[in-house]
Design a binder for these strands. Structure first.
Lengths: 257, 257
DNA sequence: TCAAAAGTGGAAGTTAACTTCAACTTATAG
DNA sequence: CTATAAGTTGAAGTTAACTTCCACTTTTGA
């Protein structure tokens, strides 16, 4: 059992320094392939999310599927390699935010930087959101991140800049909520999330001052494209079909005898 | 081509009054089955979203799959039957909201009532969000709803209660954003959305007064359950696997020779 | 009552992933 | 240089939907 290696740090947070590997090193070709797989996976997952298939990763990496399975028998191993440094980055952002003098500014800064980090990587977004708890890394990450967020919230509240009725849990929900919007909108307008983050921040601060909203309200066409990309259910449901009107798709009163 | 039957109404909106069906009436058994299918579909889709399969609907309706396909060759026809009256309800809510004297109160009321309507029906939520534009009904619905929302927004802004830099498109995005949260959280806490809607409303009003936030901040366990249910990617990715550490899932420095 | 039209059911075909594995290839150590 | 362990591959098996089709049943109207 060597896969738990918490090293205590100054504040009780757990460091992510990897232990010396105890397995024999990979063969040279294997190492090369491993690198290719990670590169391919990084790109595909950043683009399309955690769901991309091994077959596609293999194709992109110019490697057989079997190789991908051999190297990463479970997706957790792959996600570990792809995201552990990103988690470190988030922790870094949190520490920086805690170092900011003005507590409200610190909280704002954290949220903004966190979203900036996630903006370019859909996989990271999904990992941080829902995927987090199904993975060893995910659970550990939450353990590192939560106390820092709690501290940030506590500071902002004590300083009187955060509404007293807003708690740590609210911040996490807000991150998820705006993150969900980001998922749908980044491709249409990469900075739109800033606008809605600003609205929510205005809603949870206790001062009465509004910052100006960044960007412009999206126009109809933009809204349409954003909604069209919102978390689809499974298979299509708008496929082009034969032009025949579907049987009784034309309205028919339920009261027909 | 008889499946377009816009009847002009007072404000140019399109009425949804069904035309007399020109097809021969269904046989008695067919009508009975059609009813069963709709009932089953209504329940399943409200519970689990637009993605439920025909096989499952058939099982629930105690009918063969073939029957479901015969009656609803495309999902659009099914969605039409399930949702056209819900769209009418939304339009009704909008009209009521426009009749409220205080424009800001009207806007608030619309959003609240709209969410209350959607809270109990995940399928409706998905239909109103993304699914809307892939369907004849969806497109028509947007056409009816948008001008009313625009009017509501215009009123609230003229009255000076809505920030001047908030547009109609923003309201639609906010509906989608909070709707996404609702998707993830209704099962855990059916009223949690009210809290975040309140925050956003506070963020977009121009007065400096905050309403009290409904509910309490979710605690850690609650946040965990909510995030766990957030729009999953495709297949599981946290399946229980053999307890062996995945090959090199244990961290290994990328710098290994 | 009975023939025709309408409707039904569900097995079998289709699609699109995911995963395994046994024959083959390559790096490495001696 | 060679034996061997490590690694690679992609075809074939598996799973879980979706959809079609036709032999059979039910309703209807003359």
């Amino acid at each position: 059992m060597n896969h738990d290696f918490p090293l205590l740090r100054y504040d009780g947070a757990v460091s992510e320094i990897p232990p010396p590997s105890d397995r024999p090193p990979l063969r040279r070709d294997a190492e090369r392939n491993r690198r290719r797989i990670l590169t391919a996976a990084r790109g595909l997952i950043a683009e399309r999310g955690l769901g991309v298939g091994y077959e596609e990763i293999a194709r992109e990496a110019e490697v057989g599927v079997g190789t991908v399975y051999r190297r990463f028998p479970s997706r957790d191993g792959l996600f570990y390699e792809l995201f552990h440094d990103r988690v470190d980055a988030v922790v870094g952002i949190l520490e920086e935010a805690l170092a900011v003098e003005d507590p409200w500014e610190g909280l704002r800064r954290f949220m903004r930087r966190d979203f900036e980090l996630q903006a370019s990587d859909r996989g990271l977004r999904e990992f941080m959101l829902g995927g987090a708890d199904s993975t060893e890394l995910g659970r550990r990450s939450r353990g590192r991140i939560q106390p820092l967020v709690a501290e940030l919230v506590e500071r902002a509240r004590s300083a009187g800049r955060l509404r007293a009725d807003v708690g740590q849990g609210d911040i996490e929900i807000i991150l998820a909520m705006v993150g969900g919007l980001m998922d749908a909108s980044v491709r249409v307008d990469p900075d739109l999330w800033r606008r809605y983050l600003a609205m929510v921040l205005d809603g949870i601060q206790s001062g009465d001052r509004h910052d100006e909203l960044p960007g412009e309200p999206p126009d109809q066409a933009e809204v349409g494209r954003i909604l069209a990309g919102w978390a689809r259910p499974r298979r299509g449901q708008g496929r082009p079909r034969d032009p025949e009107a579907p049987a009784r798709a034309g309205p028919q009163s339920e009261t027909g005898s």
